[in-house]
């Protein structure tokens, strides 16, 4: 036994690694024609019945092409119509949501007015109403007005590039620091872009947008706060919130604080009963 392999040394084709591509390119229908031709080179390629079959196949091929062309042309308007239909539906739903929201606000106002009228009847009711008014101001449910400050913050001018990594954009955490700074400076009521903040309002991000009370906001963010105007401004600007945005200004973020004589904040929508239940007796 010789240690040398007795396998015949085969010359590897230089393009052996591309055999799949070669196979695809060369293994066409023509190979079949060639095989049939090689088997019986003298037999004429076509007979009468064969010609009929060929023509039938050609008609069938043309039919497939024509139907496909007709379908593509015919389905384009249908696709556009479906698209428009969807857009219409979205808009209709948006409108009905808006209408319902309006109706909800109106009904809330009715309930408040009716409750106020009912409580007005007795002295105990009057006391209860006064307590209710005070509590709903503290809870952020009723609209309030008073002296305060306006803080306007906006993304850096060149922050048009959207996405997670882009600097110069205000994040939810920035807005949280701003709002916490306002509370710390003694604000009694705060709203962001007309959304009143309660003790349960979340400020967080969803994708590119910042959500306040589950509603997406778009910059610039206008934060209103009611409090002792001069003290509030000084304490806020010197406090953690103001210092944070002073740092952010280095990234091009715009930050502007102004004292206001009288700002009006809306009430937060949706005060939900969580624990209280209707009494059983008396």
């Amino acid at each position: 036994m010789s240690p040398v392999s007795d396998r015949p040394v085969t010359q590897r084709r230089p393009d052996a690694s591309m055999s799949l591509l070669n196979d695809l390119a060369n293994n066409t229908v023509v190979a079949d024609y060639q095989r049939v031709h090689d088997r019986s080179p003298n037999k004429p390629g076509s007979s009468r019945g064969g010609t009929v079959a060929v023509v039938a196949v050609l008609v069938a091929a043309g039919l497939v092409l024509g139907i496909a062309a007709g379908q593509t042309r015919g389905s384009a308007p249908a696709v556009a119509a479906a698209h428009k239909e969807l857009i219409d539906r979205v808009q209709a739903r948006n409108k009905s949501t808006d209408d319902l929201q309006k109706r909800l606000e109106q009904l809330r106002a009715d309930v408040d007015a009716t409750r106020a009228a009912a409580l007005e009847a007795t002295s105990a009711g009057s006391a209860a109403r006064a307590a209710l008014d005070r509590l709903s101001i503290l809870a952020g449910i009723s609209a309030v007005h008073g002296p305060g400050i306006k803080v306007v913050v906006d993304d850096a001018p060149n922050s048009s590039a959207r996405g997670e990594g882009s600097s110069g954009r205000i994040r939810d955490t920035d807005l949280q620091r701003l709002i916490n700074g306002l509370w710390a400076a003694g604000a009694e009521a705060v709203s962001v872009n007309n959304q009143r903040l309660t003790s349960l309002t979340a400020v967080r991000s969803a994708g590119d947008a910042i959500l306040v009370a589950y509603r997406p906001l778009s910059p610039p963010y206008e934060v209103l706060a009611i409090g002792k105007a001069d003290d509030l401004e000084v304490d806020f600007v010197d406090g953690p919130g103001g210092r944070w945005f002073h740092t952010l200004a280095g990234f091009g973020i715009r930050f502007n604080v102004s004292t206001q004589q009288d700002v009006t904040l809306p009430g937060a929508s949706g005060a939900t009963l969580r624990r209280a239940e209707e009494g059983t007796g008396q």
């Binding site: 066409t28 229908v29 079949d32 024609y33 060639q34 049939v36 390629g45 076509s46 060929v54 091929a61």
Partner: peptide, 26 residues
């Protein structure tokens, strides 16, 4: 279908066209 059509056309030019192969291959 296009593949079979072009294959048939090529075979015809090569002079090896065959009805049977064309119909069956299509």
């Amino acid at each position: 279908a296009l593949d079979a059509l072009f294959g048939g056309a090529r075979a015809m030019l090569d002079g090896i066209f065959s009805d049977k192969v064309f119909v069956v291959s299509f």
